[in-house]
């Protein structure tokens, strides 16, 4: 069983992935593979390049150098909406909910890449477009239900408390039915019970077959849900291993001692 999993090609693979901002190398020659069906955590001190890595993977920023392979496709240089349609969805560290919409509408936007009605069929209210809109609504509601936000479906998204806005971003990304889900600090700002709920959701997402790449500062959460952990420091990959191995590695401890919150 384990042998089969190791032999399978990784779902995501980067080679020499690099992003330079002016004189700053935010992501530096990162080689990283993510195996399908796992929760893979990326940790590292503030400014280590975790969010920049996500921006490269999701196409928000083009890489300066290097390759990104997702499934069978080279995705470096592609646009975010193209990458999304290949099955990669993400959330944002600095929340990017659509505050000008309801909670449900936010999640319906997540269905965009999975539907196809164009301007003309929408303007004429063709039956196919209407059926598609209803189906998108149904699926969106089920994802809202999954994260526990169904009762707030018709509320303005901006009226949700912070922790629920994070869950909304999660539901919205899940609605895109990704095979790979990138979560940028989903636990930031969550309270104790909300964090437990999140850990539970992450486990359920993994068991549904979705691979998760998780950037997170909360070590308790990382150690409890992650199958594998990569440590970034100054844009470079410092270490990769199981949660236990990471905690035991002296280099990692040093890197984190430099950071205010410690490991």
């Amino acid at each position: 069983m384990a042998a089969v999993a190791v032999a399978a090609p990784p779902l995501l693979e980067t080679r020499g992935l690099t992003r330079v901002f002016g004189g700053l190398v935010a992501v530096s020659a990162v080689d990283q593979a993510v195996r399908a069906g796992t929760i893979h955590a990326i940790i590292g001190p503030n400014g280590a390049g975790k969010t920049t890595l996500f921006n490269l993977l999701s196409g928000v920023l083009p890489p300066t150098r290097g390759e990104i392979r997702f499934g069978d496709a080279r995705i470096d240089g592609r646009l975010p909406h193209q990458i999304c349609r290949l099955g990669l969805a993400r959330t944002f560290q600095n929340l990017q909910i659509f505050a000008n919409m309801t909670v449900l509408e936010n999640v319906i936007v997540g269905r965009h890449g999975r539907s196809s009605a164009g301007f003309l069929s929408a303007m004429l209210r063709l039956p196919a477009a209407r059926a598609e809109a209803q189906a998108a609504c149904t699926v969106a509601l089920s994802w809202l239900d999954f994260v526990g936000l169904a009762p707030r479906a018709d509320d303005p998204a901006g009226s949700l408390p912070y922790g629920q806005q994070r869950l909304l971003e999660l539901a919205r990304a899940l609605a895109a039915e990704p095979t790979l889900l990138l979560l940028d600090e989903p636990a930031a700002g969550l309270l104790g019970r909300e964090k437990d709920n999140l850990a539970d959701l992450l486990a359920r997402i993994r068991s549904s077959g979705v691979t998760v790449l998780l950037v997170e500062h909360d070590m308790g959460l990382v150690m409890s849900v992650a199958d594998r952990v990569t440590v970034l420091n100054y844009g470079k990959k410092l270490f990769e291993g199981s949660p236990d191995e990471v905690q035991a590695d002296p280099d990692v401890v040093v890197a984190y001692l430099g950071a205010p919150e410690g490991a």
Binding site: V60, H81, A89, Q96, I97, F98, A176
Partner: peptide
């Protein structure tokens, strides 16, 4: 409307 709300989020969701 999503583009209005957050262009980067809309784009990342397939728009």
């Amino acid at each position: 409307r999503a583009i209005h709300g957050s262009e980067v989020a809309a784009e990342s969701l397939g728009v």
